[in-house]
Design a binder for these strands. Sequence first.
DNA 1: CATTACGTTTACGTAAACGTCAAGCATACC
DNA 2: GGTATGCTTGACGTTTACGTAAACGTAATG
Lengths: 126, 126
Amino acid sequence: MTAHSAPYSISDLSRIFEVTPRTIRFYEDQGLISPQRVDQQRVYSERDFVRLKLILRGKRIGFSLAELKTTLDLYDNAPDGTSQADYVLGIIKNHRRELEQKRKDIEATLEEMEEIEARITHSLSA
Amino acid sequence: MTAHSAPYSISDLSRIFEVTPRTIRFYEDQGLISPQRVDQQRVYSERDFVRLKLILRGKRIGFSLAELKTTLDLYDNAPDGTSQADYVLGIIKNHRRELEQKRKDIEATLEEMEEIEARITHSLSA
DNA sequence: CATTACGTTTACGTAAACGTCAAGCATACC
DNA sequence: GGTATGCTTGACGTTTACGTAAACGTAATG
């Protein structure tokens, strides 16, 4: 029971995802989203909605808009030929390595923060 | 058996961490590292080494240099008073929430990538 | 009919994180 | 003594990801 469903206006998405319309238009400018137009006005489909969601998630993880564009474009069209498929598989493998690294970084940081937390709470009981 | 040990020159760190000297000097400019000087030349201790390591790890996770500065400064000096401690604990809690979110983002992305990988390899066997 | 709300394009501004010279000093080697 | 190497400090340039303002169109509302 999401408050909204497709189609969305730009301010709908702006509210839902807590980004400014400027941001959404900028992503379009960079080729990340391509909403339809009704009388010059942007109209966003469920697919656009999902794309924006993926973009913002990717950003939180630390990917650039350029990277997100290529990966979104990549995952969009299923590869036809075997060579294409191998190519995509290679890219995916790289992305996974990056992500695994980030996950390790995060886990290491979380552990350190727990240690610090423990040190502080322990020192408080002194 | 790390090839080097303290003290390090700027080019040592540059090689070890695969960043340019400019980057390291920039971090100093931003107050993230404060190496000693011997005759105007920067000399990095083991502590500086660790700091740089933490900075780069933080960057990979997606933190800004400003954020990293405050957290490094924060974790540096153990809190003396209880109020201080509570303050720090609050900040840490926020950081942990952020990191948990990022971890979720990463895991969701990894799962999607596995699905895509599966789809491709499956389509190849057709 | 004027105001308000929402949308549009165009364009200049900005903060972050360095890159890229330029010019100079010191040590080391031939 | 000249040259190469490595360090230093400016200082301007660049990319990314938007912010911000201007100037305008349209549709509903009092």
